[in-house]
Simulated scan of single mutants.
Amino acid sequence: MSGSRPYIYAEGAPGSVLEDTVAVSNPTAGAVRITLRGSGARITFAAASVRVPARTRAEVPFALTVPAGASPGERTGAIVAEGGGRTARVGVHLRVSGPALAALTVEHVRIVAGDRITYEVVNRGNTTLTPRLAVTADGVLGTVLDRKARTLPVRLPPGRRAALSEPWRDAPALDAVDVRVTVTAGGGARDTATASARFVPRGPLGGGLAALAAAGWAAHRLVRRRRGRPSTGDPRSAS
């Protein structure tokens, strides 16, 4: 293939059909039959196969159809030409016009084994997002985790879901915490989700604390029962 353009650029609304031409060259001393096909895009050719004489070129019209349900944004594809034992390709850059919508959700937040926080981010809009993450956690006595927003090494296309994990190796040994995961992205996309967890030490200390808590609860319940029992008086004072 030949031409002055390094790639083919097209722009159109969903459902539109865009027309252009591609030139195929034959630099050899004999005629060559060249077949054309589209890759990664809905491309149809006026002739899917052309016979090109020696040392000449042929221009083949083609049509690029933008899917009716396509969301606004950039798409890439290619036109591939094969013939005479050779393969050539030229890139196709398509921009789907329309209003851009940036939206995301944070889902399935969990505290796993006391050393990491797992969650999922879903792109609910029609633009590719680069999310930013902030995490906080509040315990009984105050804040135990406060990580400011930072950019994640993730590019999330429209409709895609990413399962992610945030390490938390200095989680408290004994506490009840509420974790808040906030994810933002360009265009005003933002969502927050929370999860709760209780941390209890392992081993003899943890067992002793658990037993002490159970004993305290039982004693508290016994006192309430005794306080609520009606007085019958002292039978020894009866005459």
Rank of each mutant, 00 (worst) to 15 (best):
P67S: 04
L129S: 01
P172F: 07
V154W: 11
T127C: 05
R226A: 10
D234S: 13
L145C: 02
A197P: 07
G15W: 14
P167T: 00
A103K: 08
V22T: 07
I34S: 02
S71I: 01
V223R: 14
Y119T: 00
A103Y: 07
A218C: 07
T232E: 15
R147S: 05
S165Q: 14
A171G: 09
D170A: 09
H220A: 14
A197L: 06
R155K: 09
P99W: 09
P27F: 13
V181W: 03
R124P: 00
G85W: 14
A47D: 15
R110W: 09
G40F: 14
A185G: 03
V80K: 06
A41K: 07
L164W: 07
A214Y: 11
P172V: 01
A134P: 01
E120K: 08
P6A: 05
L133Y: 08
R55D: 13
A88G: 06
G139T: 02
R202K: 13
R42S: 15
G30V: 13
E120N: 04
Y119E: 05
L205M: 12
V96Y: 09
S2L: 13
P14S: 08
G207K: 15
N126T: 02
A102W: 04
G125C: 05
Y119F: 15
V121H: 10
A213G: 15
F62S: 00
D138C: 00
P72N: 06
A70R: 03
A78T: 02
L18G: 05
G83Y: 13
S25I: 07
G228P: 00
R150N: 01
G188N: 11
T194F: 08
A113S: 12
V90M: 10
T118I: 03
A113W: 13
T130V: 11
E166K: 01
I111W: 11
L174E: 14
H220C: 02
P67N: 05
D178N: 12
G188I: 06
A70Y: 05
R33D: 15
T192I: 04
V177G: 00
Y119G: 01
A134H: 03
R95I: 03
A214L: 15
A197Y: 10
A215I: 08
L18Y: 08
E107T: 11
L64S: 01
V60E: 05
V50Y: 13
G69K: 08
V179F: 07
V32Y: 10
G233S: 12
R89V: 00
R86Q: 15
R124W: 07
L212C: 05
M1V: 09
V17M: 06
V90L: 12
E19A: 14
R55M: 11
A13L: 14
L209H: 10
R227D: 13
S2K: 09
R110H: 12
G206W: 14
S97Y: 02
A48V: 04
A185M: 09
R116V: 00
A78I: 02
V183G: 01
P204Y: 12
I8K: 05
A218F: 13
F62A: 01
L64G: 00
S4D: 14
A41P: 06
R33M: 08
K148T: 06
P53I: 06
M1L: 12
G125K: 11
R150Q: 11
V50T: 10
V154A: 02
A58R: 15
